[in-house]
Simulated scan of single mutants.
Amino acid sequence: MTGLRYVYAVCRPFRAPLQVQLTGIGGAPPAVLQHHGLVAVVSTVPEGEFSEDALRARLEDIDWLATTARAHQGVIDALTTVTTPLPLRLATVFRDDSGVRSMIEAREDDFRRALDRLEGRVEWGVKVYVESEPARPAAAAPARAASGRDYLRRRRESTHAQDELWQRAETFAQSLHERLSGRAEACRLHPPQNAALSRATGRNVLNAAYLVRRADSEEFVETVDRTKDEAPGIRVELTGPWAAYSFTQEFAGNATGAGEGL
């Protein structure tokens, strides 16, 4: 291959084929590079777009970044159906195959330990949201306040109802987290999502990831589904199964790997 090497993930050799229609960065199918019994899943990318200097500028381009992230995630998702991948940081790029092999050798023990720990396991994400206002029937819409005193009373009642809902949601979220933790091998509590960034409605009171054996995933999902109608005004969202991003942060991280190995 010619060009720079973009690395999506490291995993063990797998026999099942990837999706025929799978494409990676630049629209070409990803390839595998085997070394020391491990596999790096890679694409060839143009130096003019992925060199260290070019990436500094590209990473300020929101549209380019979104397109690249979707292609990266698509490859990781496909790998998750056939093996246990260790996702690397977005835009992890090396000069050539030799650079990729050197990276594998330098971190070989770490890769093997992580793969042993994660083999046969996937990540599920669970979020709990409380709506910004308690749900009220349309017929119960408040009439026009008769006086300033009446208006203030209604404001106090509304604030009290909202506080009660938030407290109930936090209690519900804690109880759900305890139940799900009992069905997972590990869990991570992430900071609540910023509604302005996530564009999700309501206030996020639980943002958690759970490492679950594939064999136990159906039961885990059923546990979440049973809770969705337990608390009116509270929304539970389940995502996954994903590669174990939250449990491989030493590899995936939150920053890009721009220019790594160049």
Rank of each mutant, 00 (worst) to 15 (best):
T2E: 14
G3P: 13
V7L: 12
Y8L: 05
Y8T: 04
C11H: 06
R15E: 13
R15N: 14
P17E: 07
P17I: 01
L22Y: 14
G24F: 05
A28N: 05
P29N: 02
A31T: 05
V32F: 00
V39N: 03
V42Y: 11
V45E: 04
P46R: 11
F50A: 07
D53F: 03
A54F: 06
L55P: 13
R56P: 00
L59K: 12
I62V: 11
A66T: 14
A66K: 07
T67W: 06
R70T: 14
Q73H: 15
A78V: 05
P85I: 01
P87Y: 02
M103W: 12
A106E: 15
E108I: 06
L118W: 05
G120F: 04
G125A: 02
Y129I: 03
V130N: 01
P137F: 02
A138N: 04
A139C: 06
A139Q: 09
A140D: 10
A143R: 08
G148D: 14
D150Y: 04
R155H: 05
E157K: 00
E157Q: 08
E157D: 14
T159C: 00
W166C: 13
R168Y: 02
E170I: 09
T171I: 09
S175K: 12
A184Y: 05
A184H: 08
A184M: 11
E185A: 13
N194Y: 12
A195V: 05
G202N: 10
V205H: 01
A209T: 06
V212H: 00
V212I: 11
D216N: 07
V221P: 00
P232K: 03
I234Y: 04
E237R: 08
L238C: 04
A244Q: 08
Y245I: 06
S246N: 04
F247E: 08
E250H: 15
E250F: 09
A255C: 09
G259M: 03
E260H: 09
L262T: 08
